[in-house]
């Protein structure tokens, strides 16, 4: 069947087999290989992407059901600059080793930044508890998220009353 949707801000129209899940659609049909299939039964979190602004498991979404939807992947999130500071913290703190979980982890962490600005370390660990990382001990990831949150908090309070600041300006 034909679907038309927005992926990373670009409109795409494709024929999809109903049996295609979103991650295969992104990887195989659109060449967006940043999202990974780690278990394909909804447990590992490597396929975490945004649909209509909320994080979902890409392996538990039918591509065919997304006609008219808005999908954001790690590629789009990166290009937008929305989490450039978080990505810098991941690099600075070695919060990725093999990197296979990392795009999903960044998507899940971005959800914390977007919705839970006051998350402490325990809340960060809890929010990321559906994203499996075999390499790190999770600690560097937690610290990268915590550091990003606190830097944003400092900038937000510093920026108060100084009008709009673009996200890029935070970097």
């Amino acid at each position: 069947m034909m679907i038309t949707l927005t992926v990373n801000g670009e409109r795409v129209t494709r024929h999809v087999e109903p049996r295609r899940h979103l991650i295969d659609f992104l990887r195989l049909d659109l060449g967006l290989t940043g999202s990974h299939a780690g278990c394909e039964h909804g447990v590992c979190g490597a396929c975490t992407v945004r649909v209509d602004g909320e994080i979902v498991r890409g392996c538990l979404v039918l591509a065919a059901s997304l006609d008219g939807a808005e999908v954001t992947t790690i590629e789009g999130l990166t290009d937008s600059g929305e989490v450039a500071d978080l990505q810098d913290q991941f690099v600075a703190r070695n919060a990725a080793q093999c990197g296979f979980c990392t795009p999903g982890m960044v998507m899940a962490a971005a959800d914390i930044l977007a919705h839970h600005a006051d998350a402490d370390r325990a809340a960060i660990r809890e929010h990321l508890a559906g994203n499996y990382c075999r390499c790190t001990g999770y600690q560097a990831i937690v610290e990268a998220v915590a550091a990003t949150l606190s830097e944003r908090a400092i900038h937000t309070s510093a920026d108060a009353g100084r009008g709009d600041r673009t996200r890029e300006a935070r970097r």
């Binding site: 990887r27 967006l32 290989t33 940043g34 999202s35 990974h36 299939a37 992947t73 790690i74 590629e75 990166t78 990505q87 991941f90 690099v91 600075a92 070695n94 990725a96 093999c98 990197g99 296979f100 990392t102 795009p103 960044v106």
Partner: peptide, 19 residues
């Protein structure tokens, strides 16, 4: 020293065999 290969990993630009 931060790993030079990390930016590609955090941006989803690595190349695994399935890619």
């Amino acid at each position: 020293v931060p790993r030079p290969s990390l930016p590609k990993l955090v941006q989803g630009r690595a190349t695994y065999t399935d890619d």
